[in-house]
Amino acid sequence: MFRHSIRTFAVGLSALTAAAVPAAPALAGGDPAGASPAPHTAGRALHAQTIADLTTTMKGEAYAHAVYGLFAAEADRQGLPAVARLFRSTAQTELNEHLREAATLIGMVGGNAANLRQAIDGETYEHEVMYRRFAEQARADGDLEAAKLFSEIAADEGRHRNAFRTALEVVTTGRGTIPEPPKADVVPVPAGLPKVKAARTKANLDTALHGEGLAHAKYMLFAAHAQQTGNAALARLWEGTAEVELREHLAGEAVLAGLVRATRENLDKAITGERHEATMVYPGFAERATAVGDSTAARFFRDTAADQARHAAAFQKALDQLG
């Protein structure tokens, strides 16, 4: 997708979000409370640069999944079902293949307790630091609608953190009840121009969009692990929170950012990004991984580059057919 080529990383939606990420492989020894492996166990043998490149990959692929879902919904609104299907199928590849493989290489999914601790840390940062700062900056820059949204999301992330803390207590002690999952207030994302004016607000929206996309993807992987280990209530909590991150938070931010345009422009953006990844980003990652002996990661990056080239060709064909 175009995530590497037109923006930097910091950390309407359709039926895409109804499709759960396939279950991650079972961890050896099961998942007893308090005895789960920590995240990144599999990544310890990797070179630091490879880990950084895999982390960038996960952010990008999660974001691509989310944005292609939005583009698909817009194609549906324009009466272009074939283009919508192309965006959706590509989104699934980005999420269920590329991101999942990168997550496996880096060892992102641990046991239920470790996954909850990882999420608590992230939600705490977003609640106490990131979104509060973004709201203050947007208010100072006169982007009052963005300031309001950032403040609302900060409050939501605090509730998510608290629910995860309760769930962690249940998982580690065996006492209590996993909280009920939150319900997303689904935000439609029609094509439109940005609704903010300050460059700082636009940059903060970009950071937030990437963060929400990654949170959704991670939580769906964590949900699959919880389901696999027999904790259906925890799986529901992960899935419900993932829906809020994607269909409410990311969608609201996408409206303000003017992320979705007419389908022709959306296809053009996708082509540019996929080509950049196919020819520059992933080959560069592969070269670096090869140089430090991370051959499995290098092969993953090469395979992903080939996939992105095919995506670019498919999007180009769809654009050409629009006339």
Rank of each mutant, 00 (worst) to 15 (best):
M1R: 03
H4A: 14
S5C: 03
R7E: 02
F9L: 08
A10C: 04
G12Y: 07
L16D: 01
L16V: 00
T17D: 08
A19Y: 04
A20I: 04
V21Q: 08
A23G: 04
P25Q: 11
L27R: 13
G30V: 08
S36H: 06
S36E: 13
T41R: 13
T41G: 03
T41L: 15
A42I: 11
Q49A: 05
D53G: 02
D53Q: 13
T56D: 15
T56N: 14
G60C: 01
V67A: 13
F71A: 10
E74D: 02
R77H: 00
G79H: 02
A82L: 14
A82F: 09
A84F: 06
R88E: 10
A91T: 03
Q92P: 00
E94Q: 02
L95Q: 06
L95C: 03
N96P: 02
L99C: 04
L99Q: 02
T104H: 02
I106Q: 04
G107T: 03
M108E: 09
V109Y: 05
G111M: 09
G111D: 06
G111L: 05
N112Y: 05
A114M: 04
I120F: 09
D121N: 09
E123H: 09
Y125E: 07
E126I: 00
H127W: 11
E128T: 11
M130A: 09
R132C: 04
R132P: 06
F134Q: 05
A135T: 07
Q137H: 00
R139D: 00
D143L: 09
L144M: 12
L144P: 01
L144R: 15
K148L: 11
F150D: 01
S151N: 03
A154T: 01
A155T: 15
R159F: 13
R159V: 11
N162S: 08
T166M: 13
A167R: 15
L168A: 12
I178Q: 06
I178A: 02
P179S: 03
P181N: 01
P181Q: 01
P182F: 03
L193I: 13
P194C: 04
P194N: 06
A198C: 15
A198D: 13
T201Y: 11
N204L: 15
D206N: 12
G211A: 08
G213S: 07
L214H: 06
A217V: 08
K218T: 09
Y219M: 12
M220N: 14
L221D: 01
F222L: 07
A223M: 08
A226Y: 13
A232L: 14
A233I: 10
L234I: 02
L234N: 10
A235M: 00
E239V: 02
G252K: 08
A254H: 12
A257M: 08
A257V: 05
G258D: 10
G258T: 08
L259S: 14
D268A: 14
T272P: 04
T272I: 09
R275F: 11
H276W: 13
M280H: 14
M280V: 15
M280L: 07
P283A: 03
E287Q: 08
A289D: 06
A291P: 12
V292T: 08
V292E: 05
S295L: 12
T296E: 15
T304W: 11
D307L: 00
A314C: 03
F315D: 01
F315R: 07
K317Y: 00
L319R: 15
D320S: 10
Q321G: 10
